[in-house]
C-alpha cells in the first residue's frame, strides 16, 4: 500500500509504471490537456485508456491526474465534497500505491485536487490544479444524442437549443429546473458542462486562480479552464442565474453560505444539514465554531488535534 509498484515487482505477470500509465500515454494526455488549456471549454478528444477502475468511476480524472502528477505533488481526492467517501478513499489509495505521492485532506496544502461533484469551499490559490471527474462532457448531449451533431453545434456556436431548453424550464416550472451540471459559457465562446457539481459551485469556477482540468474517460474527452478565465452560467435577463440557498447553517460547524448535505436522523422526519465539504467543516470546528447539534464526543477533539 505504501511503496510504489515501480521497479519492485518481481512477478512476470504484470508490472506498472509510475502513476500506472506508461510515459507515451501520459504524453498523449498532456498534449490533450495543453490543447484544452489553449481553447478554454473546448472538448478535446483523447485516446482514453482502460483503467484499473471501472468507467464512470473517475477514469477520466484519474488519467488526467496520472498524466500531471509528479513525485513532489500533494494529492487530495474528494467525492461529494468529502475526503472519506469510498471512491475518494479508493482513488487516493491508488495514487499512494502507484505513485507513492503524499496525500492530504487539507485543501490549501494540496497541489492537485481530484474531485467528483463538488468544488471545495476554501478558495483555491494559484498553482493548484483542480481535476474534475466528468461522466458526460457534452452539455448538449441530452438535447441531441449524436456526437456528429453536437460537434457541429459547438463549431458553429449554435447554442440556441440550450436556451430553448432553459426557457421551456421557466415556462413549465416557473424557474430553470437545472440544479446540477448547470451549463456555463467559457470565455464567451464554448458552452461547457461543469461536471455534475451543484450549480451552487458554478460561481467558484469564474476567474479562479487555480487551473481547472476536466477528464471524461469513457467518453474520451478532456477540457480545461485556465486560471483567470470568465465562466458564466447561462441565464436570461429576467431570470438571472442564482445558486441554492440553505435556510439553516451547518449543524456541526455553524457555517453559512456553504453547500450542505441533508442527513436523515430517524424515521420520524428528523433531519440535519451538515457541510458537504468535510475539510471545511473540520477546520471550522478546529477553530472553535460550533453548530447546534455538535456534541462533545471525542471525534471532535481528535479532529481538532489533527
Amino acid at each position: 500500500m505504501t511503496a510504489p509498484m515501480t521497479e519492485t515487482n518481481t512477478q512476470n505477470l504484470a508490472s506498472y509504471n509510475f502513476a500506472y500509465l506508461d510515459e507515451q500515454t501520459k504524453r498523449m494526455i498532456r498534449r490533450a490537456i495543453l490543447k484544452g488549456i489553449a481553447i478554454p471549454g473546448y472538448q478535446v478528444p483523447f485516446a482514453s485508456r482502460e483503467m484499473p477502475m471501472p468507467y464512470g468511476w473517475g477514469t477520466g480524472g484519474v488519467q488526467v491526474t496520472a498524466a500531471i502528477i509528479g513525485r513532489d505533488d500533494v494529492l487530495k481526492v474528494i467525492d461529494q465534497g468529502a475526503d472519506d467517501t469510498t471512491n475518494a478513499v479508493s482513488i487516493r489509495a491508488f495514487f499512494a500505491k502507484t505513485a507513492g505521492v503524499a496525500t492530504t485532506t487539507a485543501t490549501p496544502d494540496a497541489t492537485i485536487i481530484q474531485t467528483r461533484h463538488r468544488i471545495p469551499e476554501t478558495p483555491l490559490h494559484a498553482g493548484q490544479v483542480l481535476v474534475y471527474q466528468v461522466p458526460i462532457p457534452e452539455p448538449l448531449r441530452f438535447l441531441e444524442p449524436r456526437e456528429t451533431e453536437t460537434r457541429k453545434m459547438h463549431a458553429l456556436e449554435e447554442y440556441g437549443l440550450m436556451h430553448v431548453k432553459l426557457y421551456e424550464d421557466i415556462a413549465r416550472n416557473g424557474r430553470i429546473a437545472t440544479t446540477y451540471a448547470y451549463p456555463v459559457k467559457v470565455e464567451g465562446r464554448y458552452v461547457m458542462d461543469p461536471s455534475p457539481t451543484p450549480k451552487f459551485d458554478n460561481p467558484k469556477m469564474h476567474q479562479s486562480e487555480a487551473l481547472q482540468l476536466f477528464g471524461a474517460g469513457r467518453e474520451k474527452r478532456i477540457y480545461a479552464v485556465p486560471p483567470h478565465t470568465n465562466v458564466v452560467s447561462l441565464d436570461f435577463e429576467d431570470h438571472p442565474f442564482e445558486i441554492q440557498h440553505f435556510t439553516e447553517p451547518c449543524a456541526l460547524c455553524g457555517a453559512e453560505q456553504v453547500y450542505l448535505d441533508e442527513v436523515v436522523l430517524d424515521d420520524k422526519g428528523g433531519r440535519m444539514f451538515v457541510c458537504s465539504d468535510t475539510h471545511h467543516c473540520e477546520s471550522r470546528r478546529a477553530e472553535g465554531h460550533r453548530g447546534a447539534l455538535l456534541g462533545d464526543e471525542p471525534v471532535v477533539e481528535k479532529e481538532a488535534a489533527i
Binding site: 468507467y55 461529494q80 469510498t86 471512491n87 429546473a177 455534475p196 451543484p198
Partner: peptide, 24 residues
C-alpha cells in the same frame, strides 16, 4: 466494459446532486 462501468457507477454516492434536486 464501458457499459457496465457507467451503469454500475450509479452505486456511487450522488447525494450532493440529489440534495440539489430535493431542494428544487
Amino acid at each position: 466494459v464501458q457499459s457496465t462501468g457507467f451503469v454500475e457507477h450509479l452505486k456511487l454516492p450522488h447525494y450532493v446532486d440529489f440534495q440539489a434536486e430535493l431542494d428544487l
